[in-house]
């Protein structure tokens, strides 16, 4: 799995992705302006509701990231393709970023709404635990140098982390029997739902851009590693 498969990796090309990056950032700004313009202040929450246009999309997309980590980790264990490992790692990093953002925005929303920065409710607590699990995942990647070992171990750690989420959620829910009832879109103002979905799509574009470019950087690094390894082992490389 080391030398033979290694040279099938190609240097990734940026292609039109920089343009997509500009589009994603501008689309996010546009989505936020639209949400501000069309949705009236909430009856109970007032302007605070506008925080949710960033908080909720970040939380949804965080879930997508962790799902990608689990899928590509399984795929790595199955096919042993280095690229799957790098995609899982990129998704984990972006997921952790969105996870941190979700937590901080949730706190900023909770302070004026509930009067406290933090409540030990099931969703909040399991989101925090997920953040810690994936901080551990990223630390594992940082502390293991050998690429094949790092890929295998982080695939396993990523899958175990994903399994852990529902268990943490259930146990914290039992621990704190009082929990907020999840609001369903049907009880909400239609402009609110539309704005929320628009912003979720905008964050999804940002996520795609981030993961793609992070993967590009990781793959370039990997190709460089292999080149210098080959150069150290036996002169100039022709592959």
């Amino acid at each position: 799995m080391t030398a033979a498969a290694a040279f099938t990796l190609e240097v990734p090309k940026s292609g039109r992705w920089p343009i997509f990056g500009w589009f994603a950032v501008l689309f996010l700004a546009g989505a936020q302006i639209t949400a501000f313009a069309i949705s009236p202040p909430d009856r109970d929450m007032g302007d605070l509701q506008k925080i949710l246009y960033v908080h909720v999309p970040a939380a949804w997309n965080m879930g997508i990231c962790y799902l990608l980590v689990a899928i590509y980790s399984f795929r790595y264990l199955w096919k042993r393709d280095d690229r799957d490992d790098l995609i899982a790692a990129s998704a984990a990093e972006v997921g952790t970023l969105l996870n941190g953002l979700t937590l901080v925005l949730g706190m900023i929303w909770a302070r004026p709404t509930w009067g406290v920065w933090w409540v030990w409710d099931a969703r909040l607590t399991s989101t925090l635990i997920m953040f810690l699990v994936f901080a551990g995942y990223l630390a594992l990647r940082a502390f293991v140098e050998e690429p094949d070992r790092r890929a295998l171990w982080s695939a396993v750690a990523g899958i175990m982390g994903a399994i852990n989420y529902p268990i943490v959620y259930m146990s914290v829910r039992w621990w704190r029997t009082i929990h907020q009832v999840q609001s369903t879109p049907s009880t909400l103002d239609p402009t609110y739902t539309f704005s929320l979905r628009l912003n979720a799509v905008a964050v999804l574009f940002i996520l795609i851009y981030f993961i793609r470019r992070r993967y590009e950087a990781a793959l370039t690094e990997r190709v460089t590693e292999q080149l210098s390894q080959a150069a150290a082992l036996g002169g100039p490389l022709h592959a």
Binding site: K50, V54, A218
Partner: peptide, 30 residues
């Protein structure tokens, strides 16, 4: 409450633009 909303959006954009800058310097270095 306006301060909280402003703070939330500021945190959001700092997070996204900060990661964007880090990502691009990482790409350049690689």
């Amino acid at each position: 409450n306006g301060y909280y909303v402003a703070a939330a959006y500021a945190v959001g954009w700092i997070c996204i633009l900060g990661y964007l800058l880090r990502l691009h310097s990482l790409l350049r270095r690689s």
